[in-house]
Design a binder for these strands. Sequence first.
DNA 1: AAGTAAATAGTAATAATTACTGTTAAGAAG
DNA 2: CTTCTTAACAGTAATTATTACTATTTACTT
Lengths: 128, 128
Amino acid sequence: METIKHRYSKQRETILQVVRSTVEHPTVDWIYTETRKDIPNISLGTIYRNLSQLVASGQLLKLKDEAMVRYDGNTGHHDHFRCFRCGKWFDVQILDQKSIEAFNQKHQFEIRSVNLELEGVCEDCLKT
Amino acid sequence: METIKHRYSKQRETILQVVRSTVEHPTVDWIYTETRKDIPNISLGTIYRNLSQLVASGQLLKLKDEAMVRYDGNTGHHDHFRCFRCGKWFDVQILDQKSIEAFNQKHQFEIRSVNLELEGVCEDCLKT
DNA sequence: AAGTAAATAGTAATAATTACTGTTAAGAAG
DNA sequence: CTTCTTAACAGTAATTATTACTATTTACTT
């Protein structure tokens, strides 16, 4: 793992705060719109570049929707459930550390990221 | 769940066979190229339409790579590990049915699909 | 054998993402 | 504090995976 030197930038700082300001697992587009409220002339390329960098440095998680990519400011271990009907993402807890440890003992793979995404119908949508 | 009537088509049949012919978790582009060996003038739209349909009917799984979408002809329950270095996908087994059942008892969500993707470095790449 | 609509080929349009270019500014070194 | 290097930037163009559209074909029903 080589260390890469990162300079501070107001743009990256703001983007990180924007993503952390919500639990809604925002899309790039939403992040762009929100960040422009603080920095009106920020470039879309800057959004993409910094989101990638923040994921690479472990400060954000990246999810993949049906079509779009989404981000999550909560980097503690948790899984995701997405509702087919309303499209919302929920933070859930399914996979336990034991299962991963058991896998590590069986294989020689070095796990660096875990991404468990469930899909189905959420409680609210089941009622209607 | 409404039932949708599907007519047979040689194109869909061929696409399914192509995806099932490999364990390499092929991309749409690869599937397109391979299928054209059998049906030279098949349209890319036909590939996309049928892949979606085959996923919807549970005959294929859909994975999301860094950038691209991939498909898997093995629909039995298993998880996926992707190597950062060589980019290969491996079929692995981590999540057990018990964890999912435990989740079902705690929540009212109706789970319809489970997708666990791990990333890291594979055995071969660790050696080099 | 005739009627229907599902599926197709071919092409155009869309939209997420990346690449490029000239400029700005963070942070190190003198 | 001043100079220097280059990471990061804004703005724009290019790329590319995917979807939409249209006229035609064909699987399957009656």
